[in-house]
């Protein structure tokens, strides 16, 4: 049974590589600080958590 061969498309490959290049970057500290803010908000509304 022959298998379909997908032609290499350099534009598609480049688009995917663009995405991968950014997605594999270290997440900047600004994002971590934002997550800390969110964590603090979650912790603040937990029953029994001192405000």
């Amino acid at each position: 049974m022959p298998t379909a061969v997908t032609a290499f498309d350099p534009v598609s490959a480049a688009l995917q590589q663009l995405h991968q290049a950014v997605a594999s970057e270290k997440v900047p500290d600004d994002f971590l600080r934002l997550l800390e803010e969110i964590d603090a908000k979650i912790a603040a509304v937990k029953p029994g958590t001192p405000v």
Binding site: P10, A13, Q17, L18
Partner: peptide, 15 residues
């Protein structure tokens, strides 16, 4: 970005 068997290549930066 290039395919091993292809004659053309393209720079991601240009895309």
């Amino acid at each position: 970005v290039e395919a091993p068997s292809q004659q053309s290549a393209i720079h991601v930066a240009d895309v």
